[in-house]
Amino acid sequence: MSPAYILKRILLIGYTLLVVSLIVFAITQILPADAAVMMLGENATPDALAALRVKMGLNDSIWLQYLHWLAGVLHGDFGLSMRTGQPVAPAMFEALGRSLLLALFSIVLMLVLAIPLGIIAAVRRGRAVDLGVSFLSYVGVSLPEFVTATLVVLVLADWLQWLPATGYVPLTEDPLRGLRHLVLPVLTVSLILIAHVSRMVRSELVDVLHSDYIRAARLKGLSKRQVLFKHALRNALLPTITIVALDVGYLLGGVIVVEEIFALPGIGRQLIVAIQARDLPSIQAGALILATTYAVANFLADIAYAWLDRRIQYD
């Protein structure tokens, strides 16, 4: 993997995001929302509306509007929220930060639990442990997150009263309370991820353990342990990386439900509020930010993949 390749990939991400920005902008144009009416209210006079339209450049050609918007975006300026009249960018990035925190904790918890679970299930294939892990992960994969979330809240917050059910406290304000508020959302999200990834690790590892080179390694006199950790695991984890990268996309876009249930003001929740209020600049910003994180996550996965498997030649 050459530096030139990495540079090319970064350029490709830029290109992807440009296309995404076009689509996002086009969709917000189609939405039945007149920005001027949104800002001045239904009872505004036609003169006032016309004046505002000129001021906001709404009479310009669509391309010119797009270019104006894009220029702003490139400077980190996503415009003013139609709902609050405040700049969109700071609020969105703050929300992104909270979502990333949720994602980070969930991924770490997932990695810590899912990989060992998958390994144990694969090594003890067909035994009680494997069946148990398989059954639980099957349940985990098939339950939608609002069910998991409800169960988690019911048990840990309602019955046991161990943790707060909803709300958010910044870690900088009160680290301990902040963490307590994060536990339930993280648990909900990571349960699904763990179920998903441990199944993946298990099936990949079972395949790898049956391959010729694993047998060859055993017949060279290496112990089962050496073969598992040195020869098998690396190959089994390769496809898992791709899955984790896709899950990152899910984490940021798909946790809207989880953020809603736990009243966690992350980017998903922000986006819902924006859509409900037809707050066009916020919708554009949210969509573009999510697309960016998704593209970056996949880029990182590709880099990790190529680093682990030298057969992958990117040029």
Binding site: Y213, A216, A217, H231, R234, L308
Partner: peptide, 15 residues
């Protein structure tokens, strides 16, 4: 032991 097919008896991700 020497195996039949060197392309499957060597681990693809180790030098």
């Amino acid at each position: 032991m020497v195996f039949q097919d060197p392309s499957t008896s060597l681990n693809p991700t180790l030098s």
